[in-house]
């Protein structure tokens, strides 16, 4: 192993680590605000990437049907509640947001031929198709049991994960896809070749992290989320709606997931079920941060990426074993260092 190989491995590890870091941040965010361990986080990676790939191949992505179905289901739930409360003025708004907008999106997709659109528009369309799934899933699956124990929420997460995997196979088929790369530039840095696309992943991840920082520090919604994460009851007493905070955190998580998928799909082939493993590695990073600290989670995720890339060089057959075993010393260290607080 010489310096050049070490540099290449490092570059590879940081690229993957950046994606894991984004997912780790999303996981920490969702857990802090809603206490949900969001196993389906990885599915948004796959859905984002494959929806974009579908648009580029000129197919109508199956995600539009899921969007329509979830929208209709929410409209039914909310509508029947509004009817029961005799609150008829809310009905048009409910229908417009949950059925009208997805229908408009579907109509746009039918009318345009997405394959011929410029890449940024395709990315935007893919995001518009995938990101609303996050808050919709929260509304249907988690909000009715928002006060349940962490274990019950975890079980729901597993159910949502399995459902989304099955739908993914139905929508996108068993074979994987790659999307067109954003840039073909590559340049020499010292004696290693740096691909523009990998640089883009790192830069975009960094920018997202900075944007998240400002969102939490500078905006009223970001502060509301932080308040909910610190003390749910206290935040509610201050007039912060728990379900709004939940919706917001799931929207962010879905957006981060879909963006990560779109960023890496030109570098690697994404399958309907690849998201789970990517999400799991983000989860290892989040665990290193104790599901509470954003910077430690991000650093942990970068560490996972580096560990993965170097262990694939030295002992490729045991790569996953090494990555996932690394969680054990972390857990031991954390349990020795922190005092265990009984939940609720």
């Amino acid at each position: 192993m010489d310096l050049q190989i070490a540099l290449l491995l490092g570059q590879d590890g940081i690229t993957n680590g950046a994606i894991y870091a984004l997912l780790a941040l999303a996981l920490v965010l969702v857990f802090a605000v809603t206490r949900v361990i969001f196993i389906p986080q990885g599915e948004f990676v796959a859905f984002g990437a494959l929806t974009l790939a579908g648009l580029q191949a000129g197919r109508l992505p199956g995600t539009i049907w899921l969007l329509l179905a979830l929208g209709t289901a929410i409209a039914l739930v909310e509508g029947s509640r509004a009817l029961r409360d005799r609150n008829f003025r809310r009905l048009p708004m409910i229908l417009l947001v949950n059925c009208g907008v997805p229908l408009l999106l579907a109509g746009t997709l039918f009318a345009l031929s997405p394959a011929s659109l410029p890449l940024p528009v395709q990315v935007l369309l893919a995001l518009m198709l995938v990101v609303p799934l996050g808050p919709m899933i929260y509304r249907l699956a988690y909000q009715p049991i928002a006060e349940a124990s962490v274990l019950a929420l975890l079980i729901v997460s597993v159910a949502v994960h399995v459902t989304l995997i099955g739908l993914g196979l139905l929508f996108f088929g068993a074979e994987g896809s790659r999307t067109l790369s954003f840039t073909d530039i590559s340049f020499e840095l010292g004696d290693i070749l740096v691909q523009g696309q990998t640089l883009l992943v790192v830069v975009a991840s960094l920018m997202l992290i900075v944007a998240l920082y400002f969102f939490f520090e500078r905006t009223i919604y970001g502060k509301a989320l932080r308040a909910t994460a610190m003390n749910r009851t206290g935040a509610r007493l201050m007039g912060i709606s728990g379900s709004l905070a939940g919706m917001l955190s799931f929207t962010l998580a879905a957006a981060i997931g879909a963006l990560s998928g779109i960023l890496i799909s030109p570098i690697t082939t994404i399958y309907y079920d690849s998201g789970f493993l990517i999400g799991l590695k983000g989860f290892v990073g989040a665990i290193i941060g104790g599901l509470a600290s954003y910077p430690v989670a991000a650093a942990g995720a970068i560490l996972v990426g580096l560990l993965e890339s170097f262990s694939s060089f030295w002992a490729s057959a045991f790569k996953e074993v090494i990555v996932f075993t690394s969680i054990i010393p972390v857990l031991v260290w954390r349990s020795l260092k922190t005092r265990h607080v009984e939940e609720e």
Partner: peptide, 20 residues
Amino acid sequence: NERFNRSDTSVTGQVLKILS
């Protein structure tokens, strides 16, 4: 003699070892 997983997103490590 290297191994990789069906779900891997990167095989840079294995490939570098083969190249060397």
